[in-house]
Design a protein around this nucleic acid. Structure first.
Lengths: 247, 247
DNA sequence: GCCACGACTTCCATCCAGTGGAAAGCCCGG
DNA sequence: CCGGGCTTTCCACTGGATGGAAGTCGTGGC
């Protein structure tokens, strides 16, 4: 007595992809049952797909039996032109920026209503930051996020402004306040945050233009912007222009 | 009149994976027909699978109609623990190394008979290097490669020694010579190359130990090792030990 | 201007590969 | 030694993937 009653709209391929989607920052290692539950697939099916994915190298298996994302995915991911191209070009300028400011340097793009960090240079003894390369954060509480949001289509802005979650006591949660700031970002050419994402961390960020489109943002994280805002902005602007010219 | 005669041993999932495998360093952007040819699948099937993969975000489509690896793969790849964990830990030490030496810094692991570069800090005006983050190079012609090869299982060594391809006129292609060097790597604790991969570039590299296993290699690329070998080795050893302790 | 050619997209009858419930292993901890 | 949770294997069934062919689009040669 065997069954067969697949849900509508789920091709075989998308099931394999659903399994990959089950992994995220909070779920880097999962057991068979976890994965089956999170991807909403029957155990037996999940088991077979996990086998195929592991054999190919998309997943690895830990000694504990848990599954994790494998090297092959990491590998192939680095062929993505947007990410890698931009990174490649920006890399030396990020180093220069770090050398000139000793602040944590961020290179980020927008994906939907989130910031995705493409690269990060972390100063050794500098402010603690939560960003990770490949990681995501909300658009409204980071320097690079505000820049990207200010240059995003209106509908994206509306979505984000409609759900401003509080992260620290300084996070901006009033749509009106943020909208005003976004207008200023366009006027002044840079965005700042003051402990809105992490207590003790302020940031300043500028857009990177490719031709006349904003494709990424470049930011610095420092303990305080007091007095150094213009100097940091100057360094950022030069770097962002140089990167943009080379795209 | 439709047909259906699938080759044995090709599950649906592996067809989707075959498509992803069709992409590599030399083929970052391909048309439908290219992909179908390279993954040895019928056009119509490839077309449908490409559609599914694109819809999910595994692939993007350029304005020209060509397909490229999409951000989602890049994203998920960064959840791979081996790659990301090691990188995360090593990052600050790589910066220190760069600061201390101003040489190009490499962090790499072995995958089969190749080096995979996990991270690279490129000095601005330093020697040109061919490595890319996520890229692969042969084991026998790079500093990090020799280290990883020296600590690899015998069968891997045999395979590599059996096919030493020439890259520059200084590349070591005599199995005996290389085998002798590998023994020295184990004795001295570090490996060197002299223009074996790129003319005008020498390198020095050390292993990174996790408990008592060699999990990665750390290397520097400089115009010349003359006189600075011991100083560079010292800096590398300290960094590698610090990284190893934190794993 | 028009046709020919290549590349991409859509269609659909066929049929076998994927499916998933169930049952059998396996492993701990009590 | 037994019970419960998790993983692995099994297999009859069926509906979705398949791919040859036909349709469409774009382009360049004459």
């Amino acid at each position: 007595m065997a069954g067969n009653s697949r849900q509508a709209g789920t091709s075989v391929t998308s099931r394999a992809l659903a399994i990959l989607s089950a992994f995220d920052e909070q779920h880097r290692a999962m057991s068979l049952s976890d994965i089956a539950a999170r991807s909403d697939l029957p155990l037996a099916t999940t088991h077979r797909l996990l086998g195929e994915l592991s054999r190919w190298g998309a997943l690895d298996r830990l000694p504990t039996g848990e599954y994790v994302i494998g090297r092959k995915i990491w590998d192939i991911g680095h062929l993505a032109p947007a990410e890698t191209g931009l990174r490649q070009v920006a890399e030396p300028f990020l180093h220069d920026l770090y050398g000139a400011t000793l602040a944590t340097v961020h290179l980020a793009v927008r994906d939907g209503t989130e910031v995705v960090y493409l690269d990060r240079l972390r100063g050794n003894q500098s402010v603690p930051v939560v960003s990770k390369v490949g990681g995501r954060l909300p658009l409204h509480a980071t320097g690079v996020g505000k820049v990207l949001l200010a240059h995003a289509p209106g509908e994206v802005q509306d979505t984000v402004l409609g759900g401003l979650t509080r992260i620290t006591s300084y996070t901006i949660t009033q749509p009106g306040t943020l909208r005003r700031q976004l207008r200023q970002v366009l006027e002044k050419g840079y965005a700042t945050t003051r402990e809105e994402m992490t207590l003790g961390a302020c940031s300043i960020a500028v857009p990177i233009h490719q031709r006349d489109r904003v494709v990424a943002a470049l930011g610095l994280v420092v303990p305080s912007l007091k007095g150094s805002e213009q100097r940091l902005y100057g360094a950022l602007r030069v770097a962002a222009q140089s990167i943009g010219r080379r795209l």
